[in-house]
Write a protein that binds this DNA or RNA. Structure first.
Lengths: 227, 227, 227, 227
DNA sequence: CATGAATGAGGTTTCATTCAT
DNA sequence: TATGAATGAAACCTCATTCAT
């Protein structure tokens, strides 16, 4: 209504160039900071590293959570995609599985916020990236059907990824590639020559009803002691 | 001033009864709270559950860190000991190894602060409990020498423990015992019938000097981008 | 430089068409928004509803206050005028007074910003609209001279308007027309059959010098207590 | 459990003396500040005037709202009580009504936060103080039954109080006692010699359903124009 | 010596105003 | 000239730590 451009209506106003640059700077800085320090970072640190003011940051991402989610969605997707690609490029089904884990663990497992989120939400299939990841693993499972130990599920492979991802997080700074040894061990343990059944996963969905947490046979009781 | 004066001791001991009881109450409450909520917990929560005031708590432990360390040392030791005992009670070397992991993961892996700390400090052999744990694993390794895949180190087994411990943390609430499947897989992967050498752990001590973190082949580089 | 040069004017006018349209759009949107939400509203809300950018808004009105004042002057004047007209159309002096209040309270008393401002500035006869209003009331007073209780002043009638305006603001949403009952009561109280003199308005101009606020006989003193 | 006092268990720990002093200081300062500036004040201003730190303030009142409510409840109750007492002390029913309004308006009507809240919540009979006030007015109504104009309701008298309270707020600084003239007018308008019925309060409960706000006969439409 | 109230730096979020495009 | 992105000073609230009682 106000301020009409004579014949340029089709062309969108240009000045978003810097806005886009800023948004990207924010996301990039946030990605770096979140990777380094996890989601507990001070928003100011992100603003400082992006070179923008707090207001700019909050213009693009009204809540800290919004920024974190945006970054995680992006990084998580890229992560899943890079791992998928590594699997696709492999020569045989088992090599695909191996390459998948290697790429996944090499590429992003040091991203603290991703691992944080992965750990917190791996059972909640709401995240796009997580779904992607699960689909990749499903395909790998299908492809390596005869080679995989019977009874191994997609959830097992996903949990293995989280678990090894954590190992990467805590070793990669001081012992790069040490996690690779665990990976070999686990992959070997996944092969078909192991015939014993895996222990039943008693609660496929959620916690089973019944007396709460009587899992621990001999450990001390205080972690469960209410007060 | 004097280290131990018999007649002084009598006068001093009376008030210390309370002090000792308080200290124990604090440590016990802190253990429960730290197990449930991790080290990010509010100190007040600990004081509340101990039934002591903040001042008392801070008299015994001048910094939150001091309390946390005290608790962790104790719980970590108990943890190591319970796992050790489970191993000792086993019938054969491999059963000992299995029992060790089962007990360790069943008993304390839900202790959030322990796992936090374990993850942070597992390379720093300053903690008493960690040393204990390492000694237990050393003995298990020695005992199961012929059964263990060649090349497996104590550090591997320790890292496997951290890694599976994390899996316990994130699965035990919604999928109890799911981690047990990962444990079987890993233990099978540890058996001697796997003959391939494990990949070299290139950095036995700390990060090697040189170009920082060029580990990642294709992942984006921002996590390493300092600023 | 030159005040009015015919041929310059032609060149200048072209761009100003937009400017004028924008200015009007801003004022109109601001009027609506200020009426709804009062002066505490976010400037962005006004820009959004005007369909102009922040820059344009601030070009026309360098400070939020400028825009608010402009809107209030205009709306206040229209308000005064509509009330005046209602009074003029009435058949007799008392009906004029009644019609004046009815129109004033019906027409604009829900305009939050107007009432806010009316309350804040009713003693400061700087505003044009307020002067208008006062003139209307003066005329009504003069017309209804014999019918009005002796001693009633223009200020009384003005304050009555503010006071009832507030009643409208707080009742009109949940109890429409309830304020009308208060209006009847007040108008009846204004009639000449009441012979007692009104209490003296001790300070016709501003606060009298002297001990600060010793008005309150028995109420607690903290509202006046500085600290 | 911890730290038992030998035989003083019945006596409560003393050191709350300063806490109580602080709490009172906070409430008192808050009362003053809220009276002066309304509920939009900066919490820091209250902390500063109380002479306590932010933490202390937030220890006693975890949310700003808690503090505001506490102060308002107290001041509102005191207000209602002082007005009630003034009415009780009066010689006859009409004098009681008069004294009630005079005291109410003299004592607290300058308390901005009270009036803010009164205006916002006068239809919501949740507040204790409001209930008190309503009860006082009910009794006054009953007592002055024959003297009050027929058809006058408790809600009318309550709204009159809000309305005149607003008049006090905006006049008392520059024209003390001017509101008293409005009070006389209104009280005279409330007397029984006025026989015309008051206009019906069409919506006793809430807004009637139907086309929204077609109340305004000739006023401009923008205040209602949503967007 | 125990208590728990007090402290204040630091975290997230909002909004009037300015400025590059 | 119009745009709307950028700015940064508050505002609210939390929590490790200290200190008066």
């Amino acid at each position: 209504m106000a301020a009409q451009e004579p014949e340029d209506t089709a062309r969108r106003r240009a000045p978003r160039v810097d806005a886009i640059r800023n948004r990207e700077a924010i996301v990039e800085a946030a990605s770096a900071v979140l990777a380094e320090q996890g989601t507990a970072v001070d928003v100011r640190e992100i603003a400082r590293r992006s070179g923008v003011g707090m207001g700019t940051l909050y213009r693009h991402f009204p809540k800290k959570e919004d920024l974190v989610h945006t970054v995680l969605r992006k990084d998580f997707s890229e992560w899943a995609e890079s791992a998928r690609q590594a699997a696709v490029d492999a020569e045989d089904p088992w090599a695909a599985l191996t390459a998948f884990y290697e790429q996944a663990l090499t590429g992003y497992a040091r991203h603290r916020a991703i691992m944080e989120n992965f750990s917190l939400t791996w059972t909640v299939p709401d995240l796009e990236g997580l779904q992607q990841l699960r689909r990749v693993i499903e395909r790998l499972c299908a492809g390596a059907a005869g080679l995989l130990r019977p009874g191994v599920t997609v959830d097992d492979l996903l949990l293995l990824l989280v678990s090894l991802g954590h190992a990467v997080q805590i070793t990669d700074d001081c012992r790069p590639q040490m996690w690779n040894r665990l990976l070999r061990i686990s992959l070997d343990g996944l092969r078909a020559e192991h015939h014993e059944p895996l222990p039943a996963d008693t609660a496929p969905g959620t916690r089973p009803p019944g007396p709460d947490r009587e899992v621990r046979p001999s450990g001390p009781s205080h972690p469960a002691a209410g007060s």
